[in-house]
Design a protein around this nucleic acid. Structure first.
Length: 655
RNA sequence: GCGCUCGUAGCUCAAUCGGAUAGAGCAUCGGCCUUCUAAGCCGAGGGUUGCAGGUUCGAGUCCUGCCGAGCGUGCCA
């Protein structure tokens, strides 16, 4: 409802500017802002300032002339000028409230966004399948998953991909560990008990040291890599076992957070199905990449380009004929965009409790496990959630797409970049790592799989659950242990997910246990708590007054224009924020920033907490006013549940 | 060297295309539980938005220079 008023207002202002001042939309496009303070009304317009030059007139005079001529939408109570030229629009609070009650009763609090025909692909997580997930991976997955939820909420069709680099050096390293350090056969590796990902985490760090011992050791890496790529023998079988089992570990970890995927494209399948060869032929043909006859890169296929007047090259095919990661990524990106005339085969990898099937690619046709394969790939827009350090490479990939003539597709290939999660030196020391003097001096140290330096995702979740369980027990001693466990888990998820999205994307997170384990202040549990309280009020209200929901609806329906209490400032402020909810989701999407949405949701729950403390609802004696206050609680509850859903944060029954 | 990102309260971060008095949390101090859950609320202190210029009706935000930080710039992935 609110956004419709906003749209109508925008149109009417635009029309009025044209009629009164002869200003066309091309000259000036009306933008509505939200004032910083409630006394400035509900909407604010700044055009008098911006038109000062065009109209050669003082902003205050323009504003006055405008108000004289302007006929606002019906829901507007008054329009006034403030601050020397701001045009402030004040809504008719009673009228808005009545309409809102209508919506509430009719169950139309949610007008769905219109469905977008385009298909969006979001690729995230992408953890090398050779060790346990850590906090850096959590940021990626939570950011990606929230983006997916936000886009689905706003009407997009989204496909979630999680790329599995099962033939890369990282997997090879662990295989080297198993074969040459542990000297284990495939059979013995299979019998390693859980947690397999933790086992490999340690092994991977040992291999890094092993390489440093001699050049001969390091040669094993190359040899192993080649054996994996060749695809047969014990080495390849071990690599397959390690990566497949590891993907299960990662999916288990992410499932704890409510993160799921649609399809898992595997690098080995990209190689086997010759995606690169198909892309290479076209890149050569269009001279997007060229062969270097001489110079330092003689024998390589490179992409040449100019950046800020400087000539630069990126090697795509090495002089030994092997393809770089960037090259493979161009082919894969083309497939994601539906521009490569090849496709994978697919088989079910996992079936979730809700019936959702997670598919994995295959190089050969399979029986598909009796399920229908959805049409994967072919996205109109592709978001790649990858940390900011890969910006350069990502740009090269998109440039490759562009040079094949797909300008629009390149434009719709989006590197959804974010800064990394690092550790504070203090945190690293707490974890038992030895830091160099230089590292101790720094503000942060990078998480390093090779050093085994980092906080594992499951460890952090375990810690959060443990702490949450203590809190739940102390507050709900009578609750069944099983339910306590469920709620502790929900709180842990809330805390972790909120923590991962409260920072803007380009802010480096310096991880610290104290902040991450907090349940107070700007945290997930704060948001959950306020929603739980709202839910409690509704439940207890119906109980206390022995009302059914139908009777409540009838009570809400009974208000008439001359029979609605005037809303005090603080209540209107909460309601006003609630009304903007749809805008908040839209703004986060437009600004490509999940943190915007998360923080706005937090600000909303702050307003509710304030409201909760200031007003007695169940105890209110005036039943008209009481029912109205309850309506606001219910509206808050409904919107908050949606908002938290977008962030993947569950709402517990009790807290 | 070049490129990207950034520098905001003691600390960690926000700030809607450039908009009105720069806001939150943590920490500190002071209040509020016989009343819908104190994981909460109210209040106080805390700022020359790194420095110097410029553009603008208006600059934390845009431009230039300087100082400082992080990342990138591999025939690694």
């Amino acid at each position: 409802m609110f956004y419709k008023i906003k749209e109508e207002l925008t149109e009417k202002v635009q029309a009025c500017l044209a009629a009164t001042f002869g200003v066309t939309p091309e000259q000036y496009r009306v933008v509505i802002q939200y004032p910083t303070r409630t006394e400035f009304g509900d909407f604010s317009l700044t055009f008098p300032f911006e038109l000062a030059r065009i109209l050669r007139q003082a902003p205050a005079k323009t504003a006055a002339t405008f108000i004289e001529a302007f006929r606002p939408p019906d829901e507007v109570a008054r329009v006034d000028v403030a601050g020397g030229g701001y045009v402030n629009v004040h809504l008719d609070r009673r009228r808005i409230l009545l309409r809102l009650l209508d919506c509430l009763v009719a169950g139309r609090l949610w007008l769905p966004f219109h469905a977008e025909p385009e298909k969006v692909i979001v690729e995230h997580t992408n953890i090398n399948p050779n060790k346990a997930a850590h906090i850096g991976h959590l940021r990626n997955a939570v950011l990606g998953d929230s983006l997916v939820r936000l886009m689905r909420f706003t009407g997009r069709t989204v496909e979630v991909q999680n790329y599995i680099d099962n033939t890369g050096v990282q997997v090879a390293d662990v295989v080297v560990g198993f074969r040459y350090l542990e000297k284990l056969s495939l059979e013995k590796i299979r019998r390693i008990p859980d947690r397999f990902d933790y086992y490999c985490w340690d092994l991977y760090a040992r291999v890094a040291k092993f390489y440093e011992e001699s050049a001969e050791n390091l040669r094993l890496r190359q040899q192993t890599l080649q054996e994996i790529e060749a695809g047969d023998g014990e080495t390849a079988a071990i690599a397959h076992e390690v990566s497949t089992r590891m993907v299960h570990c990662h999916l288990d970890t992410m499932a704890r957070l409510g993160v799921t995927y649609d399809v898992l494209p595997r690098e080995s399948d990209i190689l086997d199905l010759k995606f690169w060869e198909a892309a290479f032929a076209r890149l050569r043909q269009t001279r997007a990449i060229v062969f270097e006859e001489e110079g330092p890169n003689a024998g390589c296929w490179v992409m040449k380009y100019e950046r800020d007047g400087q000539a630069d090259v990126k090697i795509i095919v090495r002089s030994n004929g092997t393809v770089t990661y960037t090259g493979k990524d161009i082919a894969y990106q083309l497939w994601k965009l539906g521009l490569l005339d090849r496709d994978f085969h697919y088989e079910p990898f996992r079936r979730l409790d809700d019936g959702h099937v997670v598919w994995i690619t295959s190089a050969t046709p399979t029986d598909r496990g009796g399920a229908d394969v959805p049409p994967f790939g072919g996205g109109d827009t592709v978001y790649n959630v990858i940390d900011v350090r890969q910006s350069y490479t990502q740009n090269v990939v998109y440039e490759g797409v562009r040079r094949l003539g797909y300008e629009a597709a390149a434009e719709r290939s989006i590197h959804f970049a974010y800064e990394m999660v690092a550790l504070s030196p203090r945190c690293a020391v707490e974890l038992g790592f030895e830091l160099s003097e230089e590292e101790r001096e720094r503000s942060h140290v990078e998480v390093s799989g090779r050093r085994g330096l980092g906080v594992k995702a499951d460890d952090l979740l375990d810690l959060l659950e443990e702490k949450a369980l203590d809190e739940v027990r102390s507050r709900n001693a009578d609750m069944a242990a099983e339910q306590q466990q469920v709620i502790a888990h929900q709180i842990a998820v809330g805390a972790l997910r909120y923590f991962m999205v409260k920072f803007t994307r380009n802010s480096l997170i310096v991880f610290d246990f104290e902040d991450a384990l907090s349940f107070e202040g700007e945290t997930g549990p704060y948001l959950q708590y306020s929603a739980v309280r709202a839910g409690n009020i509704l439940r207890k209200y119906l109980d206390r007054y022995a009302m059914t929901r139908e009777e409540l609806d009838a009570a809400w329906r009974s208000y008439t224009p001359d029979h609605v209490p005037e809303l005090p400032e603080d209540v209107w402020e909460l309601l006003g924020t609630l009304l903007k909810f749809r805008d908040l989701a839209q703004a986060a999407l437009t600004g490509q920033e999940i943190a915007t949405f998360a923080r706005n949701l937090y600000a909303l729950s702050q307003k509710f907490s304030n409201f909760y403390n200031r007003h007695q609802i169940i105890g209110e004696e005036n039943s008209d006013w009481r029912n109205l206050l309850l309506a606001i609680v219910v509206i808050y509850y409904e919107k908050m549940k949606r908002g938290l859903e977008i962030l993947g944060i569950p709402v517990p029954e009790r807290m």
